[in-house]
Structure formats: structure tokens, C-alpha cells
Design a binder for these strands. Structure first.
Lengths: 151, 151
DNA sequence: GTACTTGCAAACGATTTGCACCAAG
DNA sequence: CTTGGTGCAAATCGTTTGCAAGTAC
């Protein structure tokens, strides 16, 4: 965790970008919630609970900055707002999205390695990253539904 | 094409939903642009060019209706607005998205069949549909970039 | 005729932006 | 000091909604 923070700080400083307390706080919240998917206002609210009030615009600007630096990934699930997650030291992974309760579950990368090569050979497309979303029903919802005789 | 339209009309009528000229026009545009990904205002503009002015709200309401009926799929690529495509008579497919020019290329489904079964066994997650987005660089952009010595 | 649809304009809500002030380096 | 960052409020823009008028059935 501390390691992560230092890595991120170094990468920011290396680019000559200022390390303000707001940015540190946002990065800390992201690290504390690693493997969750926070929206800008989730982060804003978390900080407000710690009495660290800052402008929502600052949260957006910082997330934007980190995304452009490749340290944060913006995810669009089905909700109206975007969610963000750290990608530092993270292996690529995908998401199961429950169509009933909206829960998002992470799963490890399961894509055969040769697929990317095939894309390059057959389509001339050089794939850098890839995102898979599986839409369906999670265990809990399926059990609830089974009881109610739905689906 | 006509076959498609009839199928869609039948399915709409079967549900007791009214077949208005606006809805027919929107469905026609979707069919004519099968395998493209249109935004609500793309459809609105196409119809305006034919002098078929309708409210943009009607386009959104119709797309919403068709999506809920499972005949249209809403896709969120990286742009700010949503894109829609017909799914009637369509095999599942995925998308290559060029990070440089924004072009979206369709590719056939390439996911091994056993992956869904694994998800069910291991996570209890029943997958209904799945969407894969490959982000990278298309042939044309890579050639342009090679000339400019980028990447 | 009646319930569902439309068009319009207003409302909404997430995100962005302009600008005066402030602080990191 | 100087440049870039913040906070605030206003602007933006895709999408949704309320409502009166219209129309498919």
C-alpha cells in the first residue's frame, strides 16, 4: 500500500506535476478501495466523511489526470455515472455484471493469449488492452429468483 | 431486410405496442444501418435528411422501447453518447476500438464456449450475454504512425 | 372513444469550464 | 516569484420527463 503510494507519487513528480494534498487524498482513497469501482462522487463523499471537503470538480480533474497518465482506468458499467479504479500493479481482469442487482464482480483474465496475435495478423489491429463484460445473474440473485420461480 | 422488418413489426404488435410511423422509420434506419452503431441523434439526423422531422425525445423513447424488448442493444464506446444497433438475426460479436481515430470494427465471437460454463461452476454466475472491447490501434493508424515514427 | 404516442420545452444530472484566488516548487 | 491547482458557480450536453394535443386501433 505504501509502496503503491510511493510509486504513484514518483510517477507524478517525474512528470513535473504538483503533488497537492487533494491529489494525495484522492490517490489514498483509490488505494484503500482497490478492486472496488468508485465514482467521482463516491470519492468526494468518502473524503467528506473525513472532513476533507474539496470541490467535486477537483475530483474529476484528478481522475482525468490519473487516467491520462495510465494509472487509473475509467469503467462504464450500466449506471449513468463512470467508475474508476487504480491499475497500478494490477493484472488485467474482467467483470461480471449482475443484471438484477447491479453488482460488479471481478474475475481474472481468461482470454487465450493467441487471440491478440490473431487480431494483429488477420485485421492488422494492434490490441493494447481489452475489457470483457459478462452480463447475467449472480449466485444470490439466482437463488432469490429460484424461490420466486422467476427466470 | 424486409424479412427483418416484418419480424420486428410482428414482435411489436404481439406485445400490443402501437406501430406508429415514427417507430417504423426508426426501425428502418436501424435496418439500413445494420452493423453500424448509431447514436440517437444520428438517427434523428438521418430522418431529418429525408424530411421526416420528429422529436429527438421520440427517438430516445423508441430506442429505449426496442432495447427493453431485446431487439436493440445499447453500446457505450468511449464517446460521450450512447450508440445503438439492431440485434435481430445477429450473431454475437465484439468490437475493436481504435484509440487513435475512434473507429469501431466488428469481429465475430471468439470466446471459447467453456468459459461461460466455468463462470457458472466457479462463481455461480449465469452469463446471458457478453461484450468484449479490444482497445488498440487499427491498421490505417498504425501505418500513419509508422511513417511519423510514433509508437 | 380511449389509451397510448408524440412534440415541445423544461428539467435533470453528470461532467466540464471560466475565473479569481491560492499554494507547491 | 511563477506556474499550475483549487473552489465555486455557471455552463454544457446527452438524456429524461410533464403535459397538452394527436392518433392508432
Amino acid at each position: 500500500m505504501v509502496k503503491n503510494e510511493e510509486t504513484i507519487y514518483e510517477r507524478i513528480e517525474k512528470k513535473g506535476i504538483r503533488l497537492t494534498p487533494q491529489r494525495k487524498d484522492i490517490i489514498r482513497i483509490l488505494i484503500e478501495n482497490n478492486h472496488k469501482h468508485l465514482s467521482a462522487s463516491d470519492i468526494y463523499d468518502s473524503l467528506k466523511e473525513e472532513n476533507k471537503i474539496m470541490g467535486l470538480a477537483t475530483v474529476y480533474r484528478t481522475l482525468d489526470l490519473l487516467t491520462k497518465m495510465g494509472m487509473v482506468m475509467k469503467r462504464d458499467f450500466d449506471s449513468e455515472l463512470s467508475h474508476y479504479e487504480l491499475v497500478i500493479d494490477q493484472v488485467n481482469h474482467h467483470h461480471l455484471i449482475c443484471k438484477n442487482c447491479g453488482k460488479v464482480i471481478e474475475i481474472p483474465d481468461i482470454l487465450p493469449k493467441d487471440i491478440k496475435n490473431k487480431l494483429l495478423e488477420e485485421k492488422g489491429f494492434k490490441c493494447m488492452t481489452c475489457s470483457i463484460k459478462f452480463y447475467g445473474y449472480c449466485k444470490e440473485c439466482r437463488e432469490k429468483m429460484a424461490k420466486k420461480n422467476q427466470i
